[in-house]
Design a binder for these strands. Structure first.
Lengths: 206, 206, 206, 206
DNA sequence: CATGAATGAGACTTCATTCAT
DNA sequence: CATGAATGAAGTCTCATTCAT
């Protein structure tokens, strides 16, 4: 029942967007009565939030799973894996993503979102392992930047890709952006390390 | 009149968000009757769109202005200028930005948005000038990526900055991300240019 | 079962008032399913009515019991006893009273309420015993008036007492009101009995 | 418009009772749309309250007016005037009264009801003028008791009169009840004044 | 008989839009 | 052109009642 309702919500959300979603429509699509929706969700927001939470959880699980399997890889390989995971996660239900996450990108996710924080921690751990090859002086800043870059680029690649590019090419661009940022001779004061040479980019295995 | 209405709309939008904005409230804040709103705007959407368009236009004007003044600068300097311009533009009315652009980031902006296209063209021209030091093989892809990165990072820096960082530091991070991407030995097939050495990163003046 | 349900109803009614009482809440408080409520009560009204009836019955039993024990008492003593009984009966569950009887005071209780009529009959019998000292020409009118006075004053004393008075004082005021009415030289036409003197107020024992 | 809505509310309230009154019905009876109801009243409660307030105000005005004209009258005459005023006020729209005041009788009216308090003050002033012939030791208590007695008896006389009595007879009974209470040798401790004789009841003119 | 998930009519309220003044 | 009262479709939510298990 809860499942039916959530799926109907997802469908309505995908088809009509957040503003066009209402409890009657959800109930109708679900083939149940409005009352049943309110039997399981105290109000409309709770309904949307439940779907949102579940959605975010799916994302995070996929990402955390991929981050668990990065031992013994170079930073590049790790970044590629991570981005591949995120990218594929977002290819699942693009329309639903748009509806559910359109408001999220500009909101402060730091409050009490454990999942988001877990991803941040995992990414930070990854970066610490590869600290030597990362030029960004502050890892917290690096984590924030990389997560933002990956978020927006993956979303954009999936939801409004530029014409004439394959998803594969876009994914490579994301990897480049992240890697470029991480190993680029940072301008953030006060660390003015000299530019890395190519040879330095060949990391040792973990 | 139109001006009054739009300003009231901006204020309501800033204070109550998109969902909390309604035509009666706008009219009241504007000190005007609802009828007058409908004299100049066929419906609510048109009202929001007009504000949105004007807002986007402001952004674009600021950005295009800064892009016009990049002659004789290195790519780094140019990127710094551009990001500074965007950043400052977004610092003006953060709440209004959140309300107006929260939905935009995930939407396809290519349809009939002349301003957006103009920015793309200007950025592309900038990149063509510095083609030699940019490692990304496809400039269209580079433009798309850089615009997305700048968009999201500037928005996030302004609207939901990570704790313990100054706007200045965040701006540097954005510059780093863009520059890193542009000059990083790209992985996008089929261009497998050899990694650049530090010396190559020293650009010639335009 | 029926008992459990009625007690739950009483509790919900006391805590949430008539408007806030619904069958689901009653069932939940009773620790019973809604279905069971409908097994024993055809609908919500029947449920409330049953409680109401039982409640009124309790009141009436208490009052009738007290009226049965008035033999050999003066009118004053009898009135004191009766009012004491009513007063104490209402002190039991004030909140429940408010919920159950708020609508009753203005309704015609004569239709088919046997209990109410029984009380009237008992009070009339009491008055007939003391006919000599009662100045009110029509005993039916006296019964109606006294019952109304006692009803409202007891209810008010219990549910919304005036500040700075004890229940004891209020009870005395009720006795005074009733006695004053019963022995006051009535103005009701056409009985213009001469005003009673103080000596006449000293009644003989029954 | 406000008038139309309030009249419709009064009608619906009279015909269907408080529970059966809903905004749609009010709008329909008023021949206006629901929106118009909400243009003037923020919600259903406000609508009912407005009617209630107006109704109470009417009552109070009538009562206060009558109390203003009591100079030079005996207590009996004053009480008769007052009760006549209240009685006639309640004869205006009995059904509406039942709906509007059914809940009031058991509620604490002392909170912030200025009108009610004004009536109390006026009654107290009346009693002070006639202090000499009133046996009730505490005037505050007397005011409370008399108001309760008048309230309930007038309401009952109008809304559920006992069979076989005229309104005139009932009104006399109310006067008797009030006068009897006021001049009856009170039992409230500690004043045990001896019973008044008839001669004492002949007051001096004010 | 007990259960409680499911129902759906109906209540409250909002707000985009119109139109007579 | 400005006004703003009036409109009413549409959305959110409640709760008395049913019925399959």
């Amino acid at each position: 029942m809860v499942e039916t309702i959530l799926q109907a919500t997802a469908r309505v959300l995908s088809e009509r967007g957040l503003a066009g979603t209402n409890t009657n429509a959800v109930a109708e699509i679900a083939g149940v009565s409005v009352g049943s929706v309110y039997q399981y969700f105290p109000n409309k927001d709770a309904l949307i939030n439940a779907l949102h939470e579940r959605h975010v959880l799916q994302m995070e699980t996929l990402i955390l799973d991929s981050l668990d399997q990065l031992a013994g890889k170079t930073l590049l390989e790790a970044v590629e894996c991570m981005i591949e995971a995120v990218h594929e996660a977002h290819l699942l239900e693009p329309a639903l993503h748009r509806a559910l996450e359109s408001g999220d990108l500009l909101c402060d996710p730091n409050e009490d979102d454990d999942g988001y924080r877990a991803v941040m921690v995992a990414v930070r751990q990854l970066f610490e392992v590869h600290r030597a090859v990362i030029t960004v002086p502050d890892l917290d800043l690096a984590v924030w930047s990389v997560m933002k870059i990956v978020e927006i680029m993956v979303h954009s690649a999936v939801l409004s890709p530029p014409p004439n590019f394959t998803q594969c090419q876009l994914r490579c661009a994301i990897v480049d952006a992240v890697m470029g940022y991480l190993v680029y001779p940072s301008s953030v004061p006060p660390h003015h390390a000299p530019p890395r040479t190519a040879s330095e980019l060949i990391e040792v295995k973990m």
